[in-house]
Design a protein around this nucleic acid. Structure first.
Ligand SMILES: [Mn+2]
Ligand SMILES: [Mn+2]
Ligand SMILES: [Mn+2]
Ligand SMILES: [Mn+2]
Lengths: 253, 253
DNA sequence: ACAAAATATTAGGCAAGCCTAACTTTGCGC
DNA sequence: GCGCAAAGTTAGGCTTGCCTAATATTTTGT
């Protein structure tokens, strides 16, 4: 068993299949070929390799779906892709379609630890009162023609405003992270952290409870357990001890 | 002629050869092999391809050097590498050796425009009074165990301090960019921008006047032209009109 | 129900990049 | 100058990942 190192190409196939099966219930070779920009015969070859590694359920002329393990790996690739794309768009202001294609190449170069670091960084930029949206706008401005003095005047003004607003409101961060088990029925949360592991982690991921997904807490049973949540349109019922390991950002209604 | 799209592998060979020839005067196949972690016979194959594209001067058993074009392309690859590595180390606090190996994979995925954006961003983080070193330290802290409230108190304090210091000193940026032709003899400058193009650009690059390199202005001739500078141990004599197109950060001392 | 069209697979081939093993060339010590 | 070790090259082979062409299967329309 062990390391399961996939080639860039196979990671991309997995990614493409993932994006198909979250919409349809099974992937067609033709659609995979079209999204991968390859001929159908290349898809057959890739599917054989993925099936050999137990990442897709496949046999000739049969339905193509992801196995449990395949779903897990695919989601990991997709997460790397999305985080990098987010960084390129939100922080560097690269345009969406270029960000997407560059992210899809970079995703194969980075470890999960580096992606976590990117995630934290984006989050930090969004939430730190010294940074935030206005700071990123400042960066755009800074990238312009003769920006320095002008930018800096704005920057310092903004700094003071932020400072005063923050002190007044008592809000130290721009948004607050909560654990899912602290959330009251009716609230929505954007998932940022998932510390579950093993089988439970997999199960939840498959149910759509992934980083970045938005979850609404629906009902809490009389004894606080189980808790019913809605994610991607599905109702799920989870034990409180598991919710404890999932964090997110509380969204305004 | 036109696009000259090199494979990742050939870009890496070029990069390795570059790093050798800036120290020795010619590259040995054995050393290339060792740095590329590849057998010597693979090097021969790569050299043939690079020679075919006019990037290296090579024929069997002969000296291996970079052509003008090869030097240019190599420096472009090296720049992509260094900028990404810098970002990973300075902004995300990834450790040096991992940053290096990840950068060497990412470098093949990014365009020059994206690299420019990274460069500007690193510069912005270093120079903006709202960010700077203390902000990045804040990020490290933020990544720790239970950091939020605590971090934010520091952050806000720091913001105010920065604000006051900046207002007092009248310095709006943490460091100031100067054009090389404005620099007085004896000063050192870290190059950040090079707007030269064509043959001149190439010549200067070859002489070691690259982004990030540190240059000392030695003497200015009576009429202000030429100017003598030291870069990477070499004395160079440049015309004032060219210096005009090069910018950098003035270093203390 | 069955032919035609669409979809998928197989077979065979090619390029890139690496390898090992066998060879040639170079250059150094004596 | 000569002989030998080190360095470099060539030949041939392997894997990955793509292709085209031919074949097989499934789906669709009547
Ligand atoms: Mn990809
Ligand atoms: Mn991708
Ligand atoms: Mn590289
Ligand atoms: Mn590199």
């Amino acid at each position: 068993m062990s390391e399961m190192v996939l080639s860039k190409s196979l990671e991309d196939y997995l990614e493409v299949i993932y994006h198909i099966v979250v919409v349809e219930q099974a992937a067609k070779a033709k659609d995979i070929a079209q999204k991968m920009q390859v001929k159908a015969s290349s898809v057959t070859g890739a599917l054989r390799q993925l099936a050999e590694r137990d990442l897709v359920n496949y046999s000739p002329y049969d339905q193509i779906t992801l196995t449990r393990k395949g779903m897990e790996v695919a989601q990991d690739v997709v997460r790397r892709h999305e985080v990098l794309k987010d960084f390129l768009i939100k922080v560097l202001s690269i345009d969406e379609s270029e960000a997407d294609s560059v992210a899809c190449q970079m995703e194969h170069a980075v470890t999960t630890e580096i992606i976590d670091r990117f995630t934290k960084f984006i989050e930090f930029v969004e939430r730190c009162p010294r940074a935030g949206d206005s700071w990123i706008k400042g960066f755009d401005y800074y990238c312009g023609e003769k920006p320095q003095a002008d930018y800096c005047r704005k920057c310092i003004t903004q700094t003071v405003e932020n400072f005063e607003t923050n002190l007044k409101s008592g809000d130290e961060m721009n948004e607050s992270t909560v654990r899912l088990n602290q959330v009251k029925p009716g609230s929505r949360v954007k998932i940022t952290t998932n510390k579950l592991s093993g089988v439970t982690a997999r199960r939840f991921q498959e149910m759509g409870l992934t980083i970045g997904s938005i979850v609404k807490v629906e009902r809490v049973a009389p004894l606080g357990d189980p808790v019913e949540i809605i994610v991607k349109g599905y109702n799920l019922s989870l034990r409180k001890e598991d919710l404890d390991k999932i964090e997110g950002i509380l969204l305004e209604d």
